[in-house]
Amino acid sequence: MTENPLKAKDEQPFVIDPIADTGAAKWSYFSLTFSLFYFFHIIAKYEQYTNTQLISVFVIYICFIALFFQAIRSTGKAVLKPIIAIVILSAVGAAINPGTNALFGYAAFFSGYYFLRKYAVLLLILNLAAQISSALILDLLSPYYLGPSLACSFSLFVYGIFSQKEYIHSCLQQKKNQQIEQLAAIAERERIARDMHDLLGHSLSSLALKSELAEKLANKQHFEAAKKEISEVASLARQTLSEVRLAVTGLKLQGLSGSLQKLTNELKNMKFDTQCYIDALNLPPMVESTLIILSKEWITNILRHSNGNSVSIAITTDANNVTLSIGDNGKTAKIKPGNGIEGMRSRVAELSGSLDINDDDGVKLTVVIPLLATVRSNVKNKAIVSV
């Protein structure tokens, strides 16, 4: 069974911190506009209110705002206090302004959003009991008071429950993504270990055989043949060292900066005048790995096919996007996308990005990938103890 991210090892109930989720926080602040219904009764019957009552009305509303912000910033048992306080404030405030029935719904939403179902239902019952009690005591048994109050409370309670489910799904999805990234890292390490084993096993065996052959030839005074074998031993040793370095580089230079540095060095070794600029820190792992793969693919194409002598590489970010630009001054016929380019387009499309190839003046690759808030955010699991 899938583990509930809102469950601790001791199976105690949790609440969620709405501020930890960007979407929930935006909804929370926007929802305050609905609290303005609190003032409708005052506007409709302004002449019936004394100055003292008007001051009390505004004091009650200010208290509600304070409790609202306390609720969306609280965790643990502390969240229970502002919820109950909103219910009491709404019930008592009805003695001055019946418009306080608009505030019960906020307590209902927080109950549904923060708590496990059985605790949420208990809080809703308490909320409804307070509404009915205030109506009985204050002689407000009217559809105009209880009707909107009860309807709003029920609907916002249900909305709070669905918002909690959405948050749980987001937590689970992020956890799965992290597990996939960890598995990918483990698979890469295993690949490097396997390559190292196969590479060194074959190469060292060859070195041993050639060294023994050179020794035997020298003993028989076949010095020219022995010299040739020794030369091949030296060449094979250098080749093996180079291949080992390449394998180790895949482990040592993890990350975008290290990968691009390696690619830049390869271009310079092939006599390309290369400029590299990186202004991109803390990218989401999926975005960073995609940029590394795209850079390797495109620069490999340049090394194989470009007849130019200059390459520029740039990775920049703004508030919404990360942009990869790789250009060279080689001349080419009209580029026809093959499997390599189509594979690059597919990777970019998976991240809702765009890929453009311009060959009007040299060849330039431009990739733009949006940095979605759901990808960049690090969702925090804040737990509470049971109540």
Results as ranks from 00 to 15, higher is better:
100 T>Y: 01
103 L>C: 07
38 Y>L: 04
291 L>G: 03
76 G>Q: 00
81 K>L: 11
185 A>I: 01
153 S>N: 10
92 V>P: 09
14 F>H: 10
374 T>Q: 15
196 M>T: 02
151 A>G: 15
124 L>I: 08
376 R>I: 02
264 T>E: 02
99 G>W: 04
187 A>C: 11
21 D>Q: 09
306 S>Y: 02
31 S>W: 10
132 I>F: 13
113 Y>F: 09
354 S>W: 01
243 E>K: 11
167 Y>T: 08
299 I>P: 03
200 L>C: 04
191 R>M: 11
275 Q>R: 11
53 Q>P: 08
293 I>Q: 07
338 G>N: 04
366 T>I: 05
371 L>A: 14
215 E>M: 02
141 L>S: 09
111 S>M: 06
211 S>M: 13
331 K>Q: 11
382 K>F: 02
348 V>W: 07
215 E>A: 10
127 N>C: 14
207 L>E: 09
21 D>F: 09
273 D>F: 10
221 Q>H: 14
109 F>R: 03
237 A>D: 03
334 K>V: 12
83 I>T: 09
175 K>L: 06
193 A>Y: 05
251 L>A: 12
284 P>L: 03
227 K>W: 15
71 A>I: 07
293 I>L: 07
208 A>K: 13
84 I>L: 15
119 Y>E: 09
128 L>F: 09
317 T>P: 01
35 S>M: 11
277 Y>T: 13
141 L>Q: 05
233 V>K: 01
123 L>Y: 00
78 A>I: 08
110 F>C: 05
176 K>L: 04
155 S>P: 04
180 I>F: 03
277 Y>V: 10
95 A>H: 06
